[in-house]
Design a binder for these strands. Sequence first.
RNA 1: GCGCCUGUAGCUCAGCGGAAGAGCGACGGCCUUCUAAGCCGUUGGUCGGAGGUUCGAAUCCUCCCAGGCGCACCA
Length: 509
Amino acid sequence: MPAADPVARLAAELSDAVGAAVELERPSDPAHGDYATNAALRLAPQRRQAPRELAEEIAAAAAAVPAVERAEIAGPGFVNLWLTDAWLADALGAIIEQGRDFGAGEPARRERIQVEMVSANPTGPITVASARNGAYGDSVARLLEYAGHQVEREYYYNDSGAQMGKFRASVEARRQGEEPPDDGYRGAYVDELAASDEDPVPRMLEQIERTLDRFRVHFDSWALQSRLEGRLGEFLPRLDTYEKDGAVWARSSKYGDDADRVLIRSPAQGGGPTYRAADVVYLADKLERGFDRAIYVLGADHHGTRNWYTAVARMLDYDPERIEVLLYQLVHLTSGGQQRKMSKRRGDVVFLEEFMDEVGVDAARWYLVNRGPDQTIEIDVDLAAERSQKNPVYYVQYAHARIAGILRNASRQSGDAQLPGQPLEAEERELIKRLLEFPVVAAEATERRGPQAVPVYAIRVADDFHRFYHEHRVLGSDAEAFRLALVRATQNVIARSLDLVGVEAPERM
RNA sequence: GCGCCUGUAGCUCAGCGGAAGAGCGACGGCCUUCUAAGCCGUUGGUCGGAGGUUCGAAUCCUCCCAGGCGCACCA
């Protein structure tokens, strides 16, 4: 929103002055000004004009805008802009005014969105692999909320399939003092469950919810496969199906899936509904509950089901655009130089509880969302624990805590973005410009479903802050009021950035 | 064989149409001053390879090479 984003407002002002769309970007080289625009290069073809010549005109028009101190042409037709201190001070004032909401979105259409995530079957504790699902999905959910949408988080689990049977059988075997079946589950947690006579499934679910709460992933609702598959009859007539080999098949290949899929097993295979049958009901159920958009967060090992979901949507005559499948690559853990296999059934696995114990909740969230979803994550568990002091998450948190320290010691309660009676220092200008990037960072991270951009940005903010802090005093300086405002705005942006990825912003460290 | 993902500095990775980056590692500096979990400097790259599109490609397209994950009447 231009009104809330000073850079967008400036771009609009420049567009008016120039008579064409001007987009601003921050050049990587400080010698190229505070902002730069490639408008001349974009416009040259359609105006049939030499880019440099057009750049001359744009630079002249831009120079007439009060915020612009100087405009220069560079390279093939870039226009580099230097802005006045007054504009930067105004911009800081706008950030302060918006407080913790700086960078929040106001969507043209507010959507009601469901993010279904984790959804691990309750056959064991949450693993680090599932934790990535939660860290990623929850951060996307937080971003969507910050962008102004209404978001609900749901956990879906299979309480009726073959894996559940194997799980219960494994626990029962331990109760009898026997080894679990070959294709069953084993590990210390199975023995623990066997020590009690209760049904292990509800106990496992409670444990999963507790673990995820600690991980700061909180669910609004839980969906059970057993309740959904019973309603298959309602939807079967709406599907394109046929019978073959005694089974009922969905003609999904006709709707974009790679193959047809069995919905109801042949009598020879037991005759019950497959998990895909429950998928059909669940998808329809989501959309009929009124969600404009249903987001599935799935590990890369499930990527084959992406086309299946859109095929189901088409068969049921829903707009497939309402279904969104987000995939993330897997997590590999190494320990003592050895790769650890992530197999729940073998019990040879790193659980999230264990991981949080070792590296802390903040570092755990950070590690699992700090990389793009398409990137396989390699984590050396020993190193992650051992090096926790060097983790970038502490670097960012430290900036927040340092600011809290300044504000604790300050005699006045609030800063004032009025220009001090001296030119802005280079570190002040850099920090303000960095803060001004936040609305775009948040918006793009949301749009691309790429929350990793937020922690990456937070490091840059901390970077600019620590440099400023090292060079200039806040309290007792001639620019104290201005710097208090700057520092408070920085604290807000850091706190918000951390919150968007589920990391806490400490007052002291 | 087919599909999805990946290949950027020694290592782990950002960047995904505009002027090659960070952290860690290595080496060398900076604490009577609001938290040194900090700051500064040095070291480091045919952005997997070959074509193509473009004024401009790490970024888009095609092919090739290498790796990961899938391709059930399991979830």
